[in-house]
Amino acid sequence: MIDDSLSILSVSRLSKRYAGGHCALDAVDLDVRKGEIFALLGPNGAGKTTLINIVCGIVTATEGQVSVAGFDISRDFRKARSMIGLVPQELFIEGFETVSATVAFSRGLFGLAPNPSRVEQILRDLSLWDKRNSPMMALSGGMKRRVMIAKALAHEPRILFLDEPTAGVDVDLRRDMWALVRGLRDNGVTIILTTHYIEEAEEMADRIGIINRGCIVLVEDKDRLMKRMGKRQLTIQLHRPLASLPAALSERGLTLTESGDALVYTFDSQRDRSGIADIFRSLADNGIDFGDLTTTESSLEEIFVSLVRAP
């Protein structure tokens, strides 16, 4: 269990049914720790945006509670929202507004006094300073997305939500964005990003939550998940089925399949492979003939697919 004092976002029994009757979230519980990068991973339509939008006050929940640093998002909405910055999935812009005006607007909207040097710093960090007087419609797609990020950072949030931040984003922006995210994390900002790219979650996150059909199916430290992912399986097809596994083989960690015609060895792909040589020696010692050898790697992708497959 997570120590409550470390949890900066706490979601409990959160459900959302849209007007059409579609259940986008089904009694979701989630805790995000202060200062971590949390990736919410799930296929399209899983409910990621819905979850974020409820926390940010854009969508109203059907049931359940959300608190941000202990502040309930409806009762203490001012305190809760002041801490949150949101970069939405889509580019929402007013084309005639200039870059600096729209960033200054965001800062003011969140209740902070104007601070031109702070805004300048944000624009420079995002390579937007040269474009500060351009109207938004004159910017490229990548630049517009940078502006969305600048707007979200304008009020110096303690929690930053990035909804599908790299969907359709070029390599430069992707690299800059991750550098920025790491910088923010170093300054104690909690980052919650959604993605349907596994590599992205892998690359960035400290912890990963997997969501599917409105349910959180797994939340785990990335490293632990990676260890699972690092597992390889060697399957040894036998010429003659075995009734039972010789003790010498089970000691080495082999298991017999139910049908008895194959042996399975699960091992850590990062470690050296000396174990495998021993296994073959044991097989020979026990007079076991074998045919096909196959190895499979259980990737995060696989874990993901098995978790989210329709029941």
Binding site: C56, I58, P88, E90, F92, I93, L109
Partner: peptide, 11 residues
Amino acid sequence: LGTIYEVLSAP
């Protein structure tokens, strides 16, 4: 335009 999201999410 969708820019209302910001007002809805602001304190």
